[in-house]
């Protein structure tokens, strides 16, 4: 059986924003006229309660970071701007 290891090299910081925008648009495209930084993608169902764990796991694997329990419940995690800043902050 093939064992998936973590990525040998985490993706660079410039990849965070495109990665998040691509992931949250798997179900449907984001509307054009929104304030991306403040957009609550969870409230709008772009990532639902069934998909949240895989979302976090893929972020951790892609960028070689760890997201803590309390961060998952934070308001920052719920917005597109917030989660990008959260990931970038951990990569510095």
């Amino acid at each position: 059986m093939q064992i998936c290891a973590s990525r040998p090299e985490p993706a660079p910081m410039a990849a965070v924003r495109p990665f998040i925008l691509r992931y949250v648009q798997k179900k449907a495209r984001l509307p054009g006229e929104i304030d991306l930084a403040r957009f609550d993608y969870i409230d709008a169902g772009y990532v639902d309660s069934m998909g949240i764990i895989k979302f976090v796991m893929e972020i951790e694997t892609e960028f070689g970071i760890s997201i803590a329990e309390e961060e998952l419940g934070s308001n920052a995690f719920r917005t597109i701007g917030g989660i990008i800043a959260l990931i970038e902050g951990k990569m510095k």
């Binding site: 069934m50 895989k54 796991m57």
Partner: peptide, 10 residues
Amino acid sequence: RRHCGQRLAD
């Protein structure tokens, strides 16, 4: 956990 993230559906 990350292994599960890659090997299983959401």
